[in-house]
Design a protein around this nucleic acid. Structure first.
Lengths: 254, 254
DNA sequence: CGCTGCGTTGAGCCGACTCAAAGGTTGTGG
DNA sequence: CCACAACCTTTGAGTCGGCTCAACGCAGCG
């Protein structure tokens, strides 16, 4: 079992051979520990490097002139931040860490070498950006057409599955060190209302929060509230634990 | 001046030489006229072809089990529908025409040949999907953090610029045969409220609608309402007309 | 031990929604 | 070419989900 979360993540997309893995590991030799709320890329930048989150949590976001913020994506361990760097020369959004994180910095040159010399990696990288886009589409549905309660449930399920993919869940719980303001900006809600929504989920015994951990006490119910359909994550295989929840859900419904 | 809108669109992204153009024209020899409200791809499909809208209007959308619909993108003339077909084997959303359209159907094989043999086209295709993603991000900001009035203004400005890129505007006006229900589903609003928002824009003399045409009477004001920043469209050059509006806007503000 | 940021709760408000019904437009078939 | 049907737009009334403002509690940290 590979320890590198980036490899784990890509393995859910496509085949990554042993030599590809070695190549990736080498590519990401250059890692750094970054504190929370540190900007990795700023809107308007002309970036020269790609970052990969190995541990911690980062986000992609835009800020309007009057300060309103919309979070566009969360980057969990294993997620590359910005392959798009290669074609869109200036950043149209910013990227920042939300918690202390370990981040690998990969030079443009290294990526280009990989693209040129390793078709399997090239394929994996593109798959990865397509997946980002698929998640973004689901977020637009979430914010555009679901109410606060459904939105929250949907986001929690998504984050649960994405953590499961890289082996970062245990007994329905995972580490989620977001503030309620962060959740609000991801869901297009106000912080006050996020609080009320979470309080409701808690009082119904559906989730439990305990110092930066979140536990899904009734995953099937949460899944039902969200109207969650995992197809958009394009997972080739679920973690056993997530599978179990889906099975239970089906039984509940029939 | 190329007549193929796909070529015009790609030229705003990257260099397209004369032989590339010939190649693209050949690639899109297979065109069809499709009536309105025809599904080109359905969620769950395993598609084998890529479509390019040459004329008319199509959209990408998802429908929730209870019928709520979110439009994820409009495809104006020159827009490819789904290069992602190549990596995500099953569709996680649907694609349909909104008006009678001319659509080119390109086989997977043709695209793969282009990718393998023509690095410049390969680059252009990827740029194109990155641009889709950039627009999607801006839509998420729109729906998540702008009110109805701002949202509408922003969408109209975007559509105006995208039509300008392929030479489909004249005197501030362009053809926009959307129903108010379509606009509502793109903006995360109800049809009734879309109507009230448009009525307001009209009564303030900012836009004018006349049988499927929309004219920006006060583009500078519309731009200001939207808080529009065109960076996300990654245009290398604006159409002269759009440029003019930006110039005027700057003058207005200082 | 005090400061600062985060979470929680309540009151009141308003933007956007739903329901409902009356005009307009468009397209189609006789 | 007209008549009808289907769909789209417009308008009003009433409601509610989610917002803002404000205050307080709590925890972590210097």
């Amino acid at each position: 079992m590979a320890r590198n979360p980036f490899v784990l993540r890509l393995r859910h997309c496509t085949e990554i051979g042993r030599d590809d893995e070695a190549y990736l590991t080498h590519m990401m030799r250059n890692t750094a520990v970054v504190s929370a709320d540190r900007q990795l890329k700023v809107e308007g930048d002309q970036p020269t490097h790609v970052h990969v989150v190995l541990d911690g949590l980062a986000c992609r976001y835009k800020i309007l002139p009057d300060g309103r913020r919309q979070i566009l994506a969360f980057m969990v361990p294993g997620d590359p931040c910005d392959f798009q760097v290669f074609l869109l020369s200036t950043m149209d959004h910013s990227i920042a860490t939300l918690t202390p994180s370990t981040v690998a910095t990969v030079s443009r040159q290294d990526i280009e070498t990989a693209l040129a010399e390793r078709p399997s990696l090239s394929r994996a990288f593109w798959f990865s950006t397509m997946l980002d886009e698929a998640i973004l589409r689901e977020w637009l549905v979430n914010v555009g057409r679901r109410n606060a309660y459904e939105r929250m449930a949907h986001l929690l399920w998504e984050l649960y599955l994405r953590h499961a993919v890289v082996g970062k869940v245990g007994d329905g719980a995972f580490h989620l060190p977001l503030t309620q303001a962060d959740l609000a900006d991801a869901l297009g809600l106000s912080t006050v209302y996020v609080n009320k929504t979470i309080t409701r989920l808690r009082s119904l015994g559906i989730v439990e929060t305990d110092r930066r951990q979140i536990r899904l006490l009734d995953p099937a119910e949460l899944c039902a509230i969200a109207g969650f359909d995992a197809a958009y994550l394009h997972l080739r295989r679920f973690s056993e634990e997530a599978m179990e929840v889906f099975r239970r859900r089906r039984l509940t419904r029939i």
